[in-house]
Computed example of a mutant assay.
Amino acid sequence: MAASKRTPVTPVKRTTTRTVKTATQAKRRPAKNKKKVLTPVSILKYSVYMLLLCFAVTGLYRFRHGFMAYLGFNKINNKPVTVFTKEERKIADLRIYEIVSRHKDRIFGFDVSHYQGEINWDSIERSKGDFPLDFVFIRATAGNNGADSQFKRNWKNAKRTGFIRGAYHYYRPDENSVKQADNFITHVALRKGDLPPVLDIEKIPNGQSMDSLKSGLKRWLDKVEEHYGVKPIIYSGESFYTDFLKTEFKGYKLWIANYSFFNDDIRKEWDFWQFTDKAAILGIEGKVDANIYNGSKKDLKGCCIQ
């Protein structure tokens, strides 16, 4: 009997399924996280970000009252706060609100010259604005023979509308000090209830030394004090006063200009603080200098000519 032919059987590879399964698992397995290496550049970048964040947080906290008042969530002197101007909101406005909020127990005022043009004194809201206004300094003269074109009008109307008023002289360093004093005396007649005369000195001389300037300032102060019987007030920028006047002119009341974003409190040694040149007052066109007196209204009246 002949033997039958058998079909050869191909052996099955059992590793196929395991191989596929292993490959699928390999696809699903998350790749290992690579460790980030901090480079000097990345460290500097993160440091800058953190510094900016600190500045932002510090600024928000420092001017928190200003932000709240500006957004209408706060009141100053029990009155709703209004926007000073119709322009876009500016950081300068926030600083003004912040300073006003911090000095509710102080007295506010402003100062003007011919640069403000004709002021509508009857429109100035002394007690209905963003802060009450009780005093005003008015420029009277400048140099040897300069006279402010609006002084007489402003001087008269300030008194009529109930402001405590004061007159100041803009000192020109390279002009004769005695003639400058005579110029002020000729144009300004101070009365009982007026603030003492003010010497405004802001610039260094071009044609003389600083010692010569100081001697001239002393001559002006002495002559004016002798005439009015009251010690004048010195006005200057903080840096100018600190660098050139502080040592030689002790004993005078100070009116200091400082608009620094980082300065929001009146200092103990300042009698008056001109804290901004960007205030807006109804009745006055354009920006106005705003000031704080470092005391009560009773103190301010006590400072006046008796």
Results as ranks from 00 to 15, higher is better:
Trp155Lys: 12
Lys156Asp: 01
Phe131Val: 11
Asn144Arg: 11
Phe135Asp: 00
Ala142Ile: 15
Leu94Ala: 15
Arg153Phe: 05
Phe137Pro: 00
Gly143Asp: 01
His114Gly: 01
Ala142Glu: 11
Ile99Asn: 00
Gly129Met: 04
Asn157Pro: 10
Ile96Leu: 09
Asn145Gly: 08
Ile138Lys: 04
Asn154His: 09
Val100Pro: 03
Arg95Ser: 07
Asn145Tyr: 03
His103Thr: 06
Arg153Pro: 03
Ser123Lys: 13
Gln116His: 13
Ala140Tyr: 07
Phe110His: 02
Arg153Asp: 05
Ile96Arg: 03
Asp111Asn: 04
Arg153Thr: 07
Arg139Ile: 15
Ser123Tyr: 08
Phe151Lys: 14
Asn157Leu: 15
Glu98Phe: 01
Lys104Thr: 12
Leu133Met: 12
Glu125Met: 06
Ile124Leu: 04
Arg95Phe: 15
Gly146Tyr: 04
Gln150Tyr: 11
Ala147Cys: 12
His103Val: 03
Arg102Leu: 08
Gly109Pro: 02
Asn154Asp: 15
Ser127His: 09
Glu118Tyr: 11
Thr141Glu: 12
Thr141Lys: 02
Phe131Trp: 10
Asn157Val: 13
Asn154Glu: 14
His103Ile: 02
Lys128Arg: 11
Arg153Glu: 08
Ser123Arg: 15
Gly117Leu: 03
Lys104Arg: 14
Asp130Leu: 05
Arg106Lys: 12
Asn144Phe: 06
Asp130Thr: 06
Glu118Leu: 12
Ala140Phe: 12
Ala140Asn: 10
Ile96Met: 09
Val112Met: 05
Arg106Cys: 00
Asp130Gly: 01
Arg95Val: 13
Ala147Ile: 01
Ile107Gln: 07
Gln150Met: 06
Arg106Phe: 10
Trp121Pro: 01
Ile107Gly: 00
Lys104Ile: 13
Gln150Asn: 13
Asn154Tyr: 07
Ile119Lys: 01
Ser149Glu: 14
Lys152Pro: 08
Phe137Ile: 06
Arg102Glu: 06
Asp105Gly: 09
Ala140Pro: 06
Gly117His: 11
Ser149Phe: 14
Ala140Asp: 12
Arg106Leu: 08
Phe110Ala: 00
Ile119Val: 10
Asp122Lys: 14
Ile119Ser: 05
Ile99Met: 01
His103Gly: 00
Ala140His: 08
Val100Glu: 02
Val112Asn: 01
Gln116Trp: 12
Tyr115Ile: 06
Arg102Pro: 05
Ser127Cys: 15
Trp121Gln: 00
Val100Arg: 01
Phe131Asp: 01
Asp130Phe: 03
Val100Phe: 11
Lys128Trp: 07
Ile96Val: 14
Glu125Asp: 05
Gln150Ile: 09
Ser101Asp: 03
Trp121Ala: 00
Phe151Ala: 14
Glu125Phe: 10
Glu98Thr: 06
Asp130Val: 04
Glu118Met: 12
Glu125Ala: 13
Gly109Met: 04
Ile138Arg: 04
Asp134Pro: 03
Trp121Asn: 00
Trp121Ile: 04
Val136Leu: 08
Ser123Gly: 15
Ile107His: 02
Phe108Cys: 03
Phe131Thr: 02
Ser149Gln: 14
Trp121Ser: 03
Tyr97Leu: 08
Thr141Val: 12
Lys104His: 13
Gly129Val: 05
Gln150Leu: 07
Gly109His: 05
Asp111Ile: 02
Arg126Ile: 10
Tyr115Pro: 05
Ile96Pro: 01
Trp155Met: 10
Val100Ser: 05
Gln116Gly: 07
